[in-house]
């Protein structure tokens, strides 16, 4: 199917009321295939299904993890809702295999997914270091896998009130997001495929940050590598523009409040108030409850006391010496 056919597919989809259960989408688009996922997963559920890429020599896996698929944003979709063109038969027809999918193709003007701003994300992505330096190699799928994709808002509730989200825990979201980056940056091997000469030195670049391991577990790479106002999360800046001021996070108006903790704590925030909800998510950030006013006052008072006592002591000493004479 080419791009135009995709638009047609979208068009038909839009005519359908979205309330229709996702499983039926495949049927109603006129696609003859109504193949249950279990059919595909018989083969694609196997860990061993894969091939060695003739060009790079890398092993390419064709396994789809059923567990991850079922907790992803796309969990309600049939495989064939996306993979059209005859995957029901094996060997898969060449025509089907030649198909290239792209997030934007499906998500351009989809009401339900509007809040994600796919088009703006695409613009941001195009301005990111990755796309700027390697426009051909990078796409949404360099970082996202349609079969595992889970947004930081979690998945939409099954039940009527649209917009109410099942939240992921903060730490889970951090791990999820950082694994995306680590997949390439933690291992030079992965990077070699793209840039054999100068893979960025990930560990040395973060020497200045105390306790890497803890930070990797508790904050996302993108919390430092995006512009602070970037709520769409995709314009990764060149390294020299990355955030390196501790106070951005370790302060009362920590920017993490508007970013990392934005969605994941909403529910608990309603119930427990903000600070508690962050504590509860095991992410109590030192410095966030600091009160700089009190701190300053107390330091000044302390200073005065010490100076006054020192002066008193000095007075006693001189008086003592004078009397001694």
């Amino acid at each position: 199917m080419n791009r135009h056919n995709w638009l047609f597919f979208l068009f038909t989809l839009m005519l359908l009321p979205w309330a229709v259960a996702a499983e039926e989408v495949a049927v109603d688009t006129g696609d003859p295939e109504t193949i249950p996922n279990t059919h595909c997963l018989r083969c694609h559920g196997m860990g061993t299904l894969g091939y060695r890429d003739k060009l790079t020599g890398n092993l390419v896996t064709l396994q789809i993890s059923e567990a991850k698929y079922n907790t992803s944003n796309h969990r309600k979709l049939d495989c064939v809702a996306c993979h059209q063109g005859g995957f029901g038969t094996y060997p898969h027809p060449d025509k089907a295999k030649a198909e290239h999918l792209y997030c934007i193709d499906c998500h351009q003007q989809d009401e339900k997914i509007q809040p994600y701003h796919f088009l703006k994300i695409e613009d941001e992505f195009k301005r990111s270091v990755h796309a700027q330096k390697h426009p051909d190699e990078f796409s949404c799928f360099s970082c996202h896998n349609a079969h595992k994709f889970l947004s930081s808002r979690g998945v939409l509730d099954d039940e009527p009130e649209v917009g109410k989200h099942l939240h992921r825990e903060v730490l889970e979201a951090v791990t999820y997001a950082n694994n995306i980056c680590m997949r390439c940056h933690d291992s030079p091997v992965q990077l070699l495929g793209l840039d054999p000469d100068s893979p960025p030195n990930f560990l040395r670049a973060h020497d200045w940050l105390p306790n890497h391991e803890l930070h990797w577990r508790k904050v996302r790479c993108i919390d430092c590598h995006l512009a602070e106002s970037d709520k769409l999360l995709h314009e990764i800046l060149p390294a020299e523009k990355a955030l390196n001021d501790c106070r951005n996070c370790h302060s009362r108006n920590s920017m993490l409040l508007g970013k990392l903790y934005l969605y994941s704590t909403q529910q608990s925030r309603e119930k427990y108030g903000f600070v508690n909800s962050v504590i509860m998510n095991d992410a109590y950030v030192i410095g966030m409850t600091r009160n700089t006013f009190l701190e300053r006052i107390s330091l000044i008072m302390f200073g005065f006391t010490v100076v006054a006592l020192g002066a008193h002591g000095l007075g006693r000493w001189t008086a003592f010496r004078r009397r001694g004479k």
Binding site: R269, K271, G273, F274, V275, N276, I279, T289, N291, L294
Partner: peptide, 9 residues
């Protein structure tokens, strides 16, 4: 909510 902040202060 956030009573803990006042306790902390």
């Amino acid at each position: 909510p956030n009573a803990i902040v006042w306790v902390a202060i």
